[in-house]
């Protein structure tokens, strides 16, 4: 008994820490660009690679651009793109999953084949292939990530809904005169919600990782867009003179992904 108690305690403490972290980053990303006076694209060629603490709170990059302003814009970009990707993947994925479990038969099979096709390739490879159509553009990146991720929601939802639909309490509800609307809303969604929440939080982290990784290797968003991965690439040649400058975007990625993973709660494998 005591064991379960401590477990749920650390469990919720972990989630609270994740929520706090993400909350702070979201504030930085939404308010930051408005509050910070500096323009992220404004170059100050007299002050390249300025150290933190002077005129610029976090210093400047090799063109003398304010790192604080750039990090704030990059946060808004990454969080925004992650939210967009996850919603674009989760909503159709979940609805199709429930529909496939409910309908069964040919529709279920066809959707299963489509999801198998997408899973045939590792997700990043698929995104890379799409990114090749328009390197540096926002659209293929977003489409590729959403396309790779909806399958997860579809599979999890379909499997969960299938098990739930075959459970006696759903059969009993049918016999007691409840319709499909009630069963989906009151019996299936509440069981599904915690699973979906975990998956969404985790996939936000995955999206942030993928966006920065692709930009870092030069296939995602390109400079001068303020993005963590491309900022790291740009500052990489200066790691000897200004090691903390390179580590700043890296630290932002770490904090964001850590926040989402903590928010996801369980140690998901």
């Amino acid at each position: 008994m005591t064991k379960t108690k401590t477990m749920t305690f650390t469990f919720s403490r972990r989630r609270a820490a994740g929520a706090a972290l993400i909350g702070a980053l979201a504030l930085f990303g939404t308010l930051g660009p408005a509050v910070i006076a500096a323009d992220p694209a404004q170059q100050d060629l007299l002050a390249p690679l300025a150290p933190p603490g002077g005129d610029y709170l976090l210093g400047t990059d090799h063109y003398g651009r304010s790192l604080l302003a750039r990090l704030a814009h990059a946060t808004r970009l990454s969080l925004g793109l992650a939210v967009l990707t996850v919603l674009s993947a989760a909503i159709p994925g979940t609805l199709l999953g429930i529909a496939a479990a409910w309908a069964g038969g040919i529709a279920d099979r066809a959707l299963g084949i489509v999801s198998d096709m997408i899973l045939a390739l590792p997700g990043l490879l698929l995104v890379l292939l799409l990114a090749a159509f328009a390197p540096g553009q926002f659209l293929p990146l977003y489409l590729g990530l959403a396309l790779a991720q909806w399958v997860e929601y579809f599979r999890v939802t379909r499997a969960t809904a299938r098990t739930l639909l075959s459970r006696p309490h759903v059969e009993a509800s049918r016999l007691l005169g409840f319709g499909p609307g009630y069963i989906a809303r009151r019996l299936i969604l509440p069981e599904l919600a915690p699973v979906l929440a975990t998956l969404m939080a985790f996939n936000m982290g995955t999206a942030v990782l993928a966006i920065s990784t692709l930009s870092f290797i030069g296939v995602g968003l390109h400079p001068p867009t303020a993005e963590w991965g491309s900022m790291a690439t740009e500052l990489l040649p200066y790691y000897f003179e200004a090691p903390f400058h390179v580590l700043m975007p890296a630290a932002m990625i770490l904090l964001t992904v850590l926040g989402f993973h903590l928010l996801a709660g369980e140690d998901r494998s």
Binding site: G205, L209, S212, T213, F216, I217, G229, A232, A250, I253, L254, V257, L258, H261, L262, D267
Partner: peptide, 11 residues
């Protein structure tokens, strides 16, 4: 493990 999983491979 949690920290490492929050880092992209390039970092």
């Amino acid at each position: 493990a949690i920290l490492l999983r929050a880092l992209p491979a390039f970092v």
